[in-house]
């Protein structure tokens, strides 16, 4: 099949970017979208033009490294990661526009590569249980209702790709942050630090410059792992409860 690709090219973080149009004449419907770019890159190199830079790693939909805003959707028209999107999704002769994630907190590094380290910093603010290696109780000491364990898993399945931010008109990271807060709010292991966790992670999210959720639910519609906005409601609950009742008098979380 033949494809016309409009791709965002940008030399570096401070360079001005622009769209460039390429023709891919030998795409196969069985190719993944990234393999199609691989093929194009091979052709570009042979022509002496630098390959298009894009993030990718596992190519099986779990590492969360691939991104790309394809024809107006993060990860393209299907609710999967870009690496799991195949060319059979597109029509022969179609023009496909490929852009990087856009958000103040995700600056473009080169071409389609963006900096998502803000997500790591939010996790560092409290996305864990404070236990040292060793000296923990037996794994079966605390029974957890299956429903609760399953719901915690559903939240924990987030791959941190940033599609929620890319999809949101406010570049809000709340689906991402709420997934982690939910996981630990549900599990008994997370109870001890429940309040501080909500406060600190939200504060870091705000400090990174992500927007507020206005409940359009674009994130849920685009999330490749099907994370639910019910998690955002839970985060709202957790945060509000924490701010109103935690013992910390000084600034707990939020604000600028």
């Amino acid at each position: 099949m033949k494809i016309k690709l409009k791709v965002w090219r940008q030399k570096g973080p401070n360079a001005k970017g622009e769209f460039k149009t390429y023709n891919v004449d030998h795409a196969s419907p069985d190719m993944s979208f990234l393999e199609m770019i691989d093929v194009l890159n091979g052709e570009l190199i042979r022509k002496g033009e630098e390959a298009i830079a894009f993030d990718h790693d596992c190519r099986e939909g779990i590492c969360g490294m691939c991104s790309l805003y394809i024809n107006g959707h993060p990860h393209g028209p299907l609710q999967t990661t870009t690496c799991q999107l195949h060319m059979r999704t597109f029509k022969d002769g179609e023009t496909i526009t490929v852009e990087p994630w856009r958000a103040q907190a995700f600056p473009v590094i080169k071409d389609l590569v963006v900096d998502r380290s803000a997500f790591d910093r939010i996790q560092q603010a409290g996305g864990y249980v404070n236990v040292n290696t060793g000296g923990v109780p037996d794994a079966n000491e605390i029974p957890i209702p299956k429903k609760i364990a399953d719901e915690a898993f559903d939240a924990a399945t987030c791959i941190g790709c940033g599609a929620c931010v890319a999809a949101c008109k406010n570049a809000s990271a709340m689906l991402f942050v709420s997934a982690k807060i939910s996981q630990f709010a549900l599990l008994p292991q997370g109870q001890v630090e429940r309040k501080e966790r909500a406060e600190k992670m939200v504060a870091q999210m705000d400090a990174e410059g992500f927007g507020s959720c206005t409940n359009t639910y674009a994130c849920e519609a685009e999330c490749p792992k099907g994370i639910k906005v019910a998690n955002i409601a839970r985060m709202n609950r957790e945060y509000l409860g924490a701010m109103l009742t935690s013992y910390e008098v000084g600034s707990g979380g939020g604000g600028e």
Partner: peptide
């Protein structure tokens, strides 16, 4: 397994 459960890893139950 003990360590991972203490960290909040949601194993199947």
């Amino acid at each position: 397994i003990d360590q991972c459960v203490a960290q909040g890893v949601p194993f199947a139950r």
